[in-house]
Simulated scan of single mutants.
Amino acid sequence: MESKDKIFTLSNLQDQLQAWRAQGQKIVFTNGCFDILHLGHVDYLEKSRQLGDRLVLGLNTDASISRIKGPSRPLQDEMSRARVMASLLFVDAVVLFDDDTPLELIKAVQPDILVKGDDYAIENIVGQDVVTERGGEVKTVPLVKGYSTTNIVKKIENQQNS
């Protein structure tokens, strides 16, 4: 399987989710921008996948990242980011979403487990009510301290300015 085979449209993802559920597999969902892949991302996604059988990654589109983080982001286009994320062994599906939050995507995916980093309080995680109302779980995983795309960008800018 090539990494691009793990990049889904929402309708294709629905078919894949149905097949996984028919096999009794537990679906884990998380989301993010993943603009520059770093150790923090890898550790977070690996830990997220360990919570279930399949990891679905909601990936912000370029437009949604620009609205959220400003016009200088993203640094990489959405298809580049999607291919990089899909290449990871522990990511089973990547699906792009254009909203500012993943709420509608979470409603469509109906994951068994919704995961975010431990910098979020569970009650503040978007979609937690949707998942818990249908008997799913919402969990946080510990983040590797000191790793963020923003910090990497600042470090590069500081080196260029010195």
Rank of each mutant, 00 (worst) to 15 (best):
Y120A: 05
V138S: 00
L45A: 09
T101Y: 04
D53K: 06
V91R: 10
S162Y: 13
E133N: 13
V153Y: 14
T61Y: 08
D53H: 06
E123S: 03
L114K: 07
G127H: 09
S148W: 09
G127V: 10
G70I: 14
C33S: 07
A86R: 04
G52W: 04
K107N: 14
P71E: 04
Y44V: 00
T9G: 11
K47A: 11
C33I: 00
W20T: 00
K116I: 01
E123A: 05
S11E: 07
D119S: 14
L59C: 09
G24P: 10
W20S: 05
Y147V: 00
N124L: 06
N31H: 11
G117S: 13
E78T: 03
E104F: 11
L17M: 08
T150I: 13
T101M: 01
N12K: 12
D100L: 05
Y147Q: 01
M1W: 04
T150K: 14
K145W: 00
R49T: 11
V130E: 03
L143S: 12
F97A: 09
R49V: 08
N31F: 12
F29T: 11
S80P: 08
R134W: 06
E157F: 11
D35L: 01
I106M: 08
P111V: 04
D62I: 03
I156H: 05
S64R: 01
D62R: 02
I122T: 06
K107W: 06
D129A: 12
E104H: 14
N31Q: 11
N161V: 09
K107E: 08
R54H: 08
V95F: 10
I156L: 07
V138K: 02
A22V: 01
K154I: 10
P142V: 02
G70A: 14
